[in-house]
Design a protein around this nucleic acid. Structure first.
Lengths: 358, 358
DNA sequence: TTGTACGCGTTATCAA
DNA sequence: TTGATAACGCGTACAA
C-alpha cells in the first residue's frame, strides 16, 4: 500500500543510535536494557516520525505472526457472531488479530482452510467446528499446534476448551416442560457427530428417566439449521405422540415450530417447544422462543484467554477446560398441555422467569 | 508454531537446483522462464516435501501481505455476516485473507483499528462503516489506500463502492403501502450521518410527493438498532397520526412494531410497518416483516471483486460504483388500513408477492 | 535457462 | 549500555 513507510532505521538515525538500540528501546520487553536518556530520545523520534513496527518483518524474525485462526461452521448462524466478538475483545488488547474462516461443515474445506492459515503462520487456533471424531484436530494436537476448542470437544482428546454444560441445558428444558405439566417429551437433537448434541441428548434422557418418564422420542437433525429441524420434527411427530419438544438449538426449534404449524399444531397451545442457546433477535419470533441461555460472548472471551495462556505458557501449559452454566429463559413457546390430549399432568406451578442451572 | 517447516531452500536442494530457480518454478508468474524438466522436478520435490510458501517472508520482499481489512460496525448485526461471506468467497480463490474488525460506530475505535490493520500491511480495505462525512476515509483516499465502500458512501468522494439503490428501496416500500390503501405514512429513518439513510429518506419523501401525499412524518433513529427504533417510533407516534411506517431497516422496524404494541397498536391490524434489507430469520418474527430485499451476499462478492480489480489495476484503475437493485418482499406486517381510521383509501389491489425495483 | 548476490525490516547474539 | 553482524525466508535484478 503506501510506500516509503518510516522504518526502524529511520528512527535510529533520527535519534542518533544504532538500529539494534532502537529496536530494544521500542520493544517493551527489552526496554530495560537501554539508558533512560537514549530511551526517551528514541521514543520521541519514533513518535515524531510516526513509526510503527512492521509485523511481517518482525514475524519473519521471531516466527510469531501475532495472528490466530478462528474456525467456525458458518458466520450467518447467529450463534457465532457474539462468540467471535468475545474472542476479538480478548485478543486485541494483547495485540493479536484474528483470521476468520467458515468451513460450512465441510471437512475438505476445513482442511484447506486450516492449512492456509497455518501457512500464514498463525500462532494458534480457536476452533468451533469440532466433531467428536475429528482427524484434523487430532493430528494438529499431536503436532502441538496451540488450539482452544469452543462449544464442542473431540472424543479422547484433552485440549483447552470452553463449553456449555450441555447436560444441564437439556435438563433445564425438560424440567421446565415437566413443571408445566408435560409428560410426553420428544427431542430433536442436533448432529450426533458433535459432543454438544450427545451431551444434550444424554441430559434429555437422564432427566426424563429421573422423572420416571420414557425418553425414546429421539430424532436427529442432520444440521443445526431451521430446514433440518423441520425435517426431523416431521419424523418425530410421525412416530411419537408428544406434547413437548426440546430442540437441539434455537434454529432447530424454529424448524419444529414451522413443521408443527404446517400440521395444524399451534405452538404453544397444541405443543410446547424449547430452543437452546438464546440467539439474538429470536425473542421476537412467533411465538417468542422459550430457550436455554448460552453466554456466548463470555464463551468467546474465555476461549481467547485460554489461547493467550497457552501461547504464553508453551506446550507444557496445563490444559484448562471451562464449563459455562446455562440458564432457562421462559418466553412464549411453552405452556401447559391441552387437557384433552394424552400426556397431561397437573402443572406444578413453576416456570416463569429465568433461573440458573447449578 | 511448528518449527522446522520446509522452506524454499529445502525444495531447491531436493531438486538439485538453486533457490532462485525453485522460486521461479513455484511462482506461476515466472514459471515460463524455467526448463520443463527442471520445472517438473521442482514441482515434484515441493509436493513431496509438502512445501508451502511463507507469506510473511514473501510479503516482506514484495511488500504485499495478501490480506485485506474489513471494517464493519458490528458483527452481531445480521446485515453483515452475509456480506462478509460474500467478500471471503470472492477473495479466497485469489489467495487473499481477511482481517475483520468491529468499530461499534466509534470513530476512535475505527481509527485505531484502521491504523493497526495498515501497520499489518493489509493490501486494501473494504469498509462498511462509512459516514457521509468521514475524515478517516478522506485521508485514506488522499493517501491512495486501496478501498472499496460497501452499502454506504462518503460525500464528495469518488471511491469504488457497492450500494443498494436506496432511493428505489424506499419507493418500493411506500408504493406497496399505498397500494394497500394507506395515505398517512411515517418514516423512522436510520442515522442521518449515513448516505443510506439520506437516500432512503429522499426516496420516501419523493415517492410520497409523487403520490400527492404529505411526507413530513420523519423521525431519525440514532442507530440501526431495535432499541433505537423503539425510541424513535415513540416520538413519531406522539407527533403524527400515521397508519403506516417505513422503517430505516429491519431492526428499526422491529423496534417500531414493539413500540406500537406497547401502545396497544397491533401490527398489521392497526398499523402497517415495513423493514428494509430482509435480514435472515426475520421472516419468523411476529408478525413476519414485510421488507425490501438487499442482495447482501452479492454485495460482498461485488465488493471483493472491485477490491481485487483495484489491487491489480493500481491507483490509476477506473473507479467503478455498483448499484444493486432491491426487491419488495411482502409478508405479514402490512395490511390495508382500518376503515375507521384516518388516512384510508380504497386498496388498489396490488401488493402480494415480490416484484423487482426497476 | 540458471546461478549469484542482495535486500525486504526486524530481532538475537555476541563483543565491546 | 551500545554497536556490529547475522539471520529469518523469499524474490529479483543482473550476470553467466
Amino acid at each position: 500500500m503506501t510506500r516509503g513507510r518510516v522504518k526502524l532505521e529511520d528512527v535510529a538515525r533520527h535519534a542518533g543510535v544504532h538500529t539494534a538500540t532502537a529496536s530494544r528501546a521500542l520493544n517493551p520487553a527489552t526496554r530495560g536494557r537501554v539508558n533512560d536518556d537514549t530511551l526517551e530520545r528514541i521514543l520521541r523520534s519514533a513518535e515524531e516520525l510516526g513509526y510503527q513496527v512492521n509485523p511481517l518483518a518482525r514475524g519473519l524474525r521471531t516466527s510469531r505472526s501475532m495472528t490466530v485462526g478462528i474456525l467456525i461452521p458458518d458466520l450467518t448462524n447467529p450463534f457465532y457472531p457474539p462468540i467471535i466478538r468475545g474472542i476479538e475483545d480478548e485478543l486485541s488488547p494483547a495485540r493479536y488479530v484474528a483470521l476468520l474462516g467458515n468451513t460450512d461443515n465441510n471437512p475438505a474445506k476445513e482442511r484447506t482452510l486450516f492449512d492456509t492459515l497455518r501457512a500464514r503462520q498463525v500462532d494458534g487456533f480457536i476452533i468451533a467446528t469440532a466433531r467428536r471424531n475429528h482427524p484434523l484436530i487430532e493430528e494438529a494436537a499431536r503436532a502441538e499446534v496451540p488450539m482452544v476448542l469452543v462449544s464442542r470437544t473431540v472424543r479422547g482428546l484433552s485440549l483447552p476448551a470452553v463449553n456449555l454444560d450441555d447436560h444441564a441445558a437439556a435438563r433445564l428444558a425438560v424440567e421446565h416442560l415437566h413443571s408445566l405439566g408435560h409428560t410426553a417429551f420428544g427431542h430433536v437433537m442436533g448432529p450426533a457427530s458433535t459432543s454438544t448434541s450427545r451431551a444434550r441428548r444424554e441430559g434429555f434422557v437422564a432427566t426424563c428417566r429421573a422423572l420416571g418418564l420414557k425418553a425414546d422420542a429421539l430424532v436427529e437433525a442432520s444440521e443445526f439449521s431451521v430446514a433440518s429441524g423441520e425435517r426431523a420434527a416431521g419424523e418425530l411427530l410421525d412416530r411419537f405422540p408428544v406434547t413437548a419438544i426440546v430442540g437441539g438449538n434455537d434454529l432447530i426449534a424454529l424448524g419444529c415450530v414451522a413443521t408443527a404449524a404446517a400440521r395444524g399444531l399451534s405452538c404453544p397451545a397444541d405443543i410446547s417447544i424449547t430452543g437452546m442457546n438464546d440467539m439474538d433477535l429470536l425473542n421476537r419470533t412467533a411465538p417468542p422462543l422459550t430457550t436455554v441461555h448460552t453466554p456466548k460472548y463470555q464463551m468467546g472471551r474465555s476461549a481467547g484467554q485460554l489461547l493467550l495462556d497457552r501461547l504464553a505458557g508453551g506446550p507444557a501449559h496445563p490444559v484448562e477446560i471451562r464449563r459455562l452454566q446455562p440458564s432457562l429463559v421462559v418466553r412464549g413457546s411453552t405452556a401447559p398441555p391441552r387437557p384433552d390430549r394424552p400426556g397431561r399432568r397437573a402443572p406444578a406451578g413453576r416456570g416463569r422467569g429465568a433461573r440458573s442451572a447449578s
